[in-house]
Design a protein around this nucleic acid. Structure first.
Length: 207
DNA sequence: CAGTCTCG
DNA sequence: CCGG
């Protein structure tokens, strides 16, 4: 498994999942989304909708609405508990995270071809010693990162392709990151040049 | 708290 | 493309 360290704590694994593994995980995600439909998050205060649509699996899920950002155990629309995390997702976390405890949340981000995600930090978790593990499916995306406390601007970019994994922890656990754009015609795995990103998180404090 | 927004 |  080839690992490229882009910065201390920021590790990129090109082609982490082969075609077979991507398809199997995507089948898992399809089942999850049938039970926990994609919802459209909105910004706190302003209520401006995100272009990315979301769902979750695992004990906790990340949501955002006028009330704020938070993790909660139920779907914001159906109010059902999030579906369990598939075994093969847990396996990926165990292989990539180097963290003893299993994740308690997996955010499912669905990008239509014109969806974007502005620069942000993942900081709604209580356990910053655990890394964020990200898996990409479908269209290639321009991932931009930078601006940590240790190492301020400027930002850099890397293209995330279907099957790639990226892990950020340690000094880059709170790195600012976002998706500037998708590249059409780069994959047929997700219909209509779309992209799905899975991010695994340890939300609750372990100690 | 809210810049995971939009806009120049 | 880039920003924080």
């Amino acid at each position: 498994m080839a690992a490229l360290t882009l910065a201390p704590g920021l590790v990129y694994y090109p082609d982490y999942l082969d075609q077979q593994a991507q398809q199997s995980l995507l089948d898992d995600i399809r089942d999850i989304v049938r039970q926990a439909p994609l919802f459209t998050p909105s910004m706190p205060k302003t209520g401006k909708p995100f272009s990315v649509r979301m769902s979750n699996c695992g004990p906790l899920g990340w949501v955002s609405d006028v009330q704020g950002y938070r993790y909660q155990p139920d779907h914001p629309v159906t109010h059902n508990p999030w579906p369990p995390m598939p075994a093969r997702l847990l396996a990926a976390w165990r292989e990539l995270s180097g963290f003893a405890a299993d994740p308690d949340a997996c955010l499912i981000n669905y990008y239509a071809s014109d969806a974007r995600m502005g620069l942000h930090q993942d900081k709604d978790e209580a356990e910053f010693s655990a890394p964020i593990v990200s898996l990409s499916f479908g269209a290639t995306a321009l991932f931009r990162y930078g601006l940590t406390e240790d190492k301020p601007s400027p930002t850099k970019s890397v293209r995330l392709r279907s099957g790639d994994a990226i892990v950020f922890g340690g000094p880059f656990r709170l790195v600012y990151h976002g998706i500037d754009r998708l590249f059409p015609g780069t994959s047929t795995l997700v219909p209509s040049d779309g992209r799905i990103n899975l991010t695994l998180r340890k939300v609750t404090a372990v100690a």
